[in-house]
Design a protein around this nucleic acid. Sequence first.
DNA 1: CATGAATGAGAGTTCATTCAT
DNA 2: GATGAATGAACTCTCATTCAT
Lengths: 194, 194, 194, 194
Amino acid sequence: MGDKSLRKKNQILEAAREVFFKRGYRAVTMKDIVEACGISRGGLYLYFANTKELFEEVLDREYRTLQSVLDAPASKNANPGEILLMYLDEQKKEILRKDTLAAARYEYMFENRFSEDGMSAKNHFVKTVKALEQLIADGVAQEWMVCESPKEAAKNIAYTLEGMKAAAQTIGISAKTVDSQIAYIMGTLGMVIK
Amino acid sequence: MGDKSLRKKNQILEAAREVFFKRGYRAVTMKDIVEACGISRGGLYLYFANTKELFEEVLDREYRTLQSVLDAPASKNANPGEILLMYLDEQKKEILRKDTLAAARYEYMFENRFSEDGMSAKNHFVKTVKALEQLIADGVAQEWMVCESPKEAAKNIAYTLEGMKAAAQTIGISAKTVDSQIAYIMGTLGMVIK
Amino acid sequence: MGDKSLRKKNQILEAAREVFFKRGYRAVTMKDIVEACGISRGGLYLYFANTKELFEEVLDREYRTLQSVLDAPASKNANPGEILLMYLDEQKKEILRKDTLAAARYEYMFENRFSEDGMSAKNHFVKTVKALEQLIADGVAQEWMVCESPKEAAKNIAYTLEGMKAAAQTIGISAKTVDSQIAYIMGTLGMVIK
Amino acid sequence: MGDKSLRKKNQILEAAREVFFKRGYRAVTMKDIVEACGISRGGLYLYFANTKELFEEVLDREYRTLQSVLDAPASKNANPGEILLMYLDEQKKEILRKDTLAAARYEYMFENRFSEDGMSAKNHFVKTVKALEQLIADGVAQEWMVCESPKEAAKNIAYTLEGMKAAAQTIGISAKTVDSQIAYIMGTLGMVIK
DNA sequence: CATGAATGAGAGTTCATTCAT
DNA sequence: GATGAATGAACTCTCATTCAT
């Protein structure tokens, strides 16, 4: 695939992200995409066979962008508690951001829940839990935190965040609620937000 | 609407539940329902105008069934901690049950997240949180539990459960994980499962 | 058909007239009629097999009502010119009346233009032309009017009225226009409206 | 829209005209058109959204064709009386032609009598009346005709023609009758057909 | 590579008509 | 006679997908 093709593909993905954000996953038709990115009907099929394939690439790009933020070694001189707080603040932004693909992602995952396609989401989850567990274990070792089962605590944080994300897309959630949940989580680990 | 009509309506709702469970919300067409309950194309329209209306009634029935379990005064001689545990066990069943409408429910909620139709879900959530808060407050007052902010703890439980429900429908969750999360929750409230 | 049946039939016809007036001929469904007269779906079929049959009876009733007005010997002491004017005034009312079945009648006639069903309309037209011709011939004989070919004059009046009726149902017509056309017609017969 | 598209559109319009002529306006379905012009179901929708849109374009074409005949400067060396006669002869052909859209046009107009869509018909009528009025005024000025109110005479001609057109589609009309009506009209203007 | 007209399957919906009660 | 639930054919319209240019 040439350079020109790659640029075109990126154009499509950007326009598609907008469409998926606005209309979710299932409601989106190839026609919608075609209209949104001003490409020809047949032309789109040269790059993507269907909306599923398209969405998967959109999601991939999204994950990569998010991951790069999270993996950044911004934690040089920070203690585990500070790092955890930074992570939770990042998640807060994600929960509350307006132009999220979260709803579309859920739709996609529900649709493909019996197939293998949800694996990348699962891997992402497992990875996150492990990182959190390590963080908490470190926090306990360095006596910043109090926790008997870092593994369960990590999972609990992950599920709580997942629950807030789902709620944000369905029944709604306020910034204040997210804040107080963050404070509560920190509290269960024996830390207090200054 | 006569007695016979009501019976028919119930038949349709039962068949429809099966279809929604199998295929989610959006993928379901009136034709699917028609074929599932051996009624004529036009006949179905005598009872329901579209899949949305149908699904809302299916969901209503579902809520009523669940609610009746929760509202049951099974708590006569139980202390707050025992009641909470019973509630969490009930939720565990719901999280793990195979024939759940959860995925379809999420699809429905995402689809209608900007309209008023999601309100019943929100009310259900708020109600649950209030009940949990009361339970924890009682538990603290009777010195069964330790908790500085019952309100946040209640919300935390609700979001954790929501996160596990969402996870169950997407990346999957094991009974063991649910059990250990229940234990962890009880632990944060200063209780230990025997 | 018993007395009760006849009453029921009349009820249906009255409700049906309203429906045909409001929605024209073709747009009307048996369902519309059923809903308008509060009879059962199957019940309606005991009296009328379809909307065509129904409309024909509604039209028949209408003709009979109109005819009775026109045939009335209101012309005792009137001269032919006065009678003609009276007739034209009657037609003016018909042209301008709001609750006319004219549009539905046209629809019906166009629909059935190749069948025998339009004959009653044709008979009605021929009868009217003959009466007008006689009137004009009398007027000429008694030297109230001037006309070389009463037959053509009569037809001309009939077609002009028909044209105004059609116009009233499509592009609209004002009372003033009808008035001036009546005056013009009288003028062509050498008469002047005082 | 390319050249090929335009040709296709014209093909559709021609096939559609045939269908509308045969079956009127309301009875025509998109399926009828599809079958008549050997196009695919979806293909037709690329050009026309519904039968109304289609019929309006068919009618437009028709009007344009008719108009071009009337606007032709065939009147170089003709006096007003001769022009009027030519016009009436043209109308005679229209009244009597077998493959006319008149019936469908009436159906369409009745159907849309309360909307703005009937306006083009009204404009057409008004335009015709004005042209006739001018013709008669000229005829009177040049002493070919005798008429006290050219405006009313013009309207009378228009309504008479309209009446004959309607009659042709419903109760029928013979060539002889149209001829004698033309003669009568000329007579009322003080002219005699040689 | 790129285009966009064309296809046809299939969804939603309505209605005349029937028939067991 | 009277009811109204049930039927199934038919209609409108949309969309993923193909294919000649």
